[in-house]
């Protein structure tokens, strides 16, 4: 079976021929249903990688293929969530979650007539992330962690094949972050969605992912790839496991030397 995402020898430069070379010689393959994490030093091109896969940026050289098609424009089979939840403050949480349906071509035509069905789906998602009954609240009435949960619902409402998360838990406190790790873990188990998680939190990457890609300093490329051996379902107690910490330490060493090489 061909991979869902395949990045082949991609270069991406910002701001014209003399601009910043963000990634160079990038190669990566992500199979359907995989949970991948991308880790690397700050500014190495992790967010750039996300934007290449979603079609927000088109590379100057190399090919990005998603679901069998070369990416030349935004691909709407992707859901995205960033560190900043960017909920629209004039819409209720439920209306915020329904927003992608007003955009995505195949849903926007059906939305008006099948409103109930979609609202039910949104409410089901809210329940899944532990926000049952909060749909009518405005985002500014929710805590940061709750907003991020709603953000995940928004990223999932149009049933994307691929969920791209760019440091989604960076701004949260440790306990909320661990709670949300479990939310993501369960979402992945239930919905079978392919997930790419960009993070600088190595424990997060080892706890959640099946495969971990380590990027070099800018211009970013993949310098190593790890398969996470821990069986699913994983419990939070894994965080205190010896083998778990060894793996975190290995990753830490790799990134430290990648930074030193820069």
């Amino acid at each position: 079976m061909s991979p869902l995402v395949s990045i082949d020898n991609v270069d991406m430069r910002y701001g014209g021929p003399d601009g910043t070379l963000a990634v160079a010689g990038l190669n990566m393959k992500i199979a359907k249903g995989d949970f991948c994490a991308v880790v690397g030093p700050s500014g190495c091109g992790k967010s750039t990688l996300m934007k290449l896969v979603t079609g927000l940026h088109i590379p100057q050289s190399g090919v990005v293929i998603v679901a069998g098609r070369q990416v030349t424009e935004p691909v709407s089979i992707v859901g995205m969530a960033f560190q900043n939840p960017t909920m629209l403050p004039w819409r209720t949480t439920l209306e915020n979650i329904l927003l992608p349906l007003e955009i995505v071509e195949r849903h926007r035509k059906r939305l008006r007539r099948h409103k109930r069905e979609y609202v039910e789906k949104a409410e089901h998602l809210l329940e899944t992330v532990g926000l049952k009954g909060f749909g009518s609240k405005f985002p500014w009435q929710l805590s940061g962690g709750m907003q991020q949960r709603a953000n995940l619902c928004r990223a999932l409402i149009h049933e994307p094949d691929l969920l791209m998360l760019d440091e989604p838990f960076g701004a949260l406190d440790a306990f909320t972050r661990e709670e949300l790790w479990c939310v993501i873990r369960d979402l992945h188990a239930e919905q079978g969605v392919t997930i790419v998680l960009v993070t600088h939190d190595l424990r997060e990457s080892v706890f959640l992912a099946d495969r971990i890609f380590v990027m070099s300093a800018r211009p970013g490329r993949i310098i190593s790839e790890h398969t996470v051996p821990f069986a699913r379902p994983r419990e939070l107690s894994l965080l205190y496991d010896g083998a778990f910490n060894d793996m975190v330490q290995t990753l830490h060493g790799e990134i430290a030397s990648a930074r030193a090489a820069a």
Binding site: T54, L56, P74, V75, T86, L99, I103, V104, A155
Partner: peptide, 12 residues
């Protein structure tokens, strides 16, 4: 916010 724009543009 550029992120808001990115989220929406990625959806087409």
């Amino acid at each position: 916010e550029p992120e808001t724009e990115d989220v929406l543009r990625a959806l087409g």
